[in-house]
């Protein structure tokens, strides 16, 4: 993506990075762009987003950890559905991606 310094445009071994169609999605209401078919997590990382969710009990942040669908640290609310593994779920046009607080899309009030 133009503007993201984390995207590898050319790699010494893999050559030019194959990019899909550029699509727009929203992250907590903010429009972002990514490539269709890449994991949501990759698009978020390239856009500079590191926090995917906050835990239910201690409200501590979590992000990409295993990137292969094992650890569930990167789950977010995608199109209203909570606990979606963003490292495994391909990005599609118009997706609504939200930070997950516990299992909800709203920050809980801490006592």
């Amino acid at each position: 993506m133009a503007g993201s310094d984390l995207r590898i445009s050319e790699h010494p071994i893999l050559g030019q990075t194959k990019e899909g169609r550029e699509v727009t999605f929203t992250y907590d209401g903010r429009p972002l762009t990514g490539y269709e078919g890449e994991p949501i997590a990759a698009a978020l990382r390239a856009a500079g987003v590191m926090v995917h969710r906050y835990t239910a009990k201690k409200h501590t942040p979590r992000g990409i950890f295993c990137a292969i669908g094992r650890c569930t640290d990167c789950v977010m609310i995608v199109d209203g559905e909570p606990n979606v593994r963003t490292c495994m779920t391909p990005l599609r046009e118009g997706m609504k991606v939200q930070t997950q607080y516990g299992v909800s899309s709203r920050p809980e009030v801490t006592p």
């Binding site: 590191m50 995917h52 992000g63 990409i64 990137a67 292969i68």
Partner: peptide, 14 residues
């Protein structure tokens, strides 16, 4: 557990 700590395999995947 902080975002930014990840498996080496995760970095490789990305």
């Amino acid at each position: 557990t902080l975002p930014g700590v990840m498996g080496a395999g995760a970095a490789q995947t990305l």
